[in-house]
Design a binder for these strands. Structure first.
Lengths: 73, 73
DNA sequence: CCATCTTACGGTGCTCGTAAGTATA
DNA sequence: TATACTTACGAGCACCGTAAGATGG
């Protein structure tokens, strides 16, 4: 897992919305989807529950969210 | 700068030798050369002095060396 | 329909190994 | 000649945007 992965993950967690996270990060939405998917594969877990109004953290996602990296944003 | 860049940088700094760092990291030597070069370009600075017996940190390199990331190795 | 996430596709650049080149002692 | 760093090259994959698809309210 690289720093950029964590930055994207955090923005999605913060907004609860992949589209808005993408806009705020300056990416298109499909890239953020793909990045989150790859991160989930790498960690062999599910970080977000997907529903029609956005996404919410799973318990695994909440664990990652509190990792003490990169908070200098 | 990503975590992997820092990991490679640190191993080179630790050993003072790109070839040995590469071996310890499980890469070929030319890749480590290229990675360090890319990192230097990204940071727009020179991290190592090159000489015929290896490399030594520049003052910029010493600054990066003490960054408080990734020390969990 | 509208908002949102996903999938397909192609371009560009990074990462990696192999191989050859350069330099110093 | 031995040791070390650099450059050239090509394969594979990640990252990025565009575009189209799927789903729920």
């Amino acid at each position: 897992m690289e720093l950029q992965d964590l930055k994207v993950f955090r923005k999605v967690a913060e907004t609860g919305n992949i589209s808005r996270a993408a806009k705020e990060l300056g990416y298109v939405q499909s890239n953020v989807t793909a990045r989150i998917r790859r991160l989930e594969e790498e960690l062999a877990t599910t970080l977000f529950h997907r529903h029609s109004r956005g996404v919410t953290l799973t318990s695994a996602g909440r664990s990652l969210e509190i990792m003490p990296f990169g908070s200098s944003t």
